[in-house]
């Protein structure tokens, strides 16, 4: 006989549990509708790409409980490696994408190795410092990266794969191509969370010392989570590069890491779809507020502080908790 936590509940499964069971198809459906809801395809693609980088970050921050301030490094590395592979070596787009993901993942593994043994604010600072190191390397290696001018000259106007050709200059088609990768990443993250590994990272987030006493190799688990998170952020980076056909140096700056943290928190750390909601909220604020003041960051920053103080679960997290409470 199985006496599970669920079988002890008398009533029907709460809405949140039913949503959670279908979170991948529901999320993909929402992303499919996005370009038709938002005022422009450009905004939709940005929500998609920044949402995806926040999804990767959320795996580490929201589900494993590690506050990294260095995720720009993986996002940026994915973008640069893809851009350089196409622009300099004429690598086909799909291979360039794979290279970008692999490079970002490898970098995440190394930065993870160096940072994972530190705790709390020290962990945040080590990740910040190491990612700034990557920024300065990119700045110095300007013959490869274009330095302050950014990386250019790798425009991909059509995608070919298995005899299929897609016009990548058509914004709608471009959106759906990128969405296929985002959907695959969402499925992958959901798979991780549903697996026994998901229980382990959750336990580490809740109580690291107890998890260790239970017999879990906490450092190794964190390193795996860090690397997986970096892989997804690198994927977002490669898609960003394909989308914009330029990689600005700023992508590696810690401002970008801060923006990733803000998007994740705005949407709701530890909520599955929250990162896209957070990316949307952030980009919308940036768009709207920058129309009437160049100091949009003050407004966005204030909103962010209000969220941390009064809505710590973020927009999506609060909405889900509220629905579950009814």
């Amino acid at each position: 006989m199985t006496l599970s936590a669920q079988s002890l509940d008398a009533g029907p499964r709460p809405l949140r549990a039913r949503l959670a069971a279908r979170r991948v198809p529901l999320s993909i459906l929402a992303l499919c509708l996005l370009p038709w809801i938002l005022p422009s395809e450009a905004l939709a693609v940005n929500v998609l790409v920044y949402g995806l980088v926040a999804v990767g970050y959320n795996l580490l921050f929201g589900y494993t409980g590690l506050l990294s301030f260095g995720h720009a490094a993986f996002f940026g590395t994915g973008a640069y490696v893809t851009g350089i592979a196409i622009g300099r070596f004429d690598v086909p787009w799909f291979a360039a994408l794979a290279l970008g993901v692999a490079a970002g993942g490898a970098l995440a593994f190394v930065i993870g190795l160096l940072s994972i043994r530190t705790r709390g604010i020290y962990f945040s600072m080590v990740t910040l410092a190491l990612s700034q190191l990557v920024y300065y390397i990119a700045l110095q290696a300007s013959s490869w990266t274009g330095g302050e001018n950014g990386l250019r000259g790798f425009t991909v106007s059509e995608l070919n794969l298995f005899g299929w050709t897609v016009d990548f200059l058509d914004p709608v088609k471009k959106y759906y191509v990128i969405m296929v990768f985002a959907a695959a990443a969402l499925w992958f993250v959901s798979r991780i969370l549903n697996s026994p590994f998901g229980s382990v990272i959750e336990a580490i987030r809740e109580n690291e010392t107890r998890a260790r006493a239970c017999g879990y190799d906490v450092e190794r688990t964190k390193l795996i989570s860090f690397t997986l998170s970096g892989l997804i952020c690198a994927l977002a980076g490669t898609l960003f590069a394909l989308h914009l056909a330029i990689v600005p140096l700023d992508i590696l700056h810690y401002h970008t890491s801060g923006m990733i943290v803000m998007m994740t928190l705005l949407g709701g750390a530890g909520s599955f779809f929250g990162p896209f909601v957070g990316a949307f909220a952030f980009l919308l604020m940036e768009d709207v507020v920058s129309l009437w003041t160049p100091h949009w960051q003050i407004v966005v920053g204030s909103v962010f502080i209000l969220f941390v103080l009064f809505l710590p679960k973020g927009i999506w997290g609060t909405l889900m908790a509220w629905r579950a409470g009814r």
Partner: peptide, 19 residues
């Protein structure tokens, strides 16, 4: 208690459902 029990079996099997 369940997550404590899980420590004694394969942990990093991503293709399995924890439930």
């Amino acid at each position: 208690v369940r997550v404590a029990a899980q420590a004694f079996r394969s942990r990093y099997d991503i293709w399995r459902d924890r439930a």
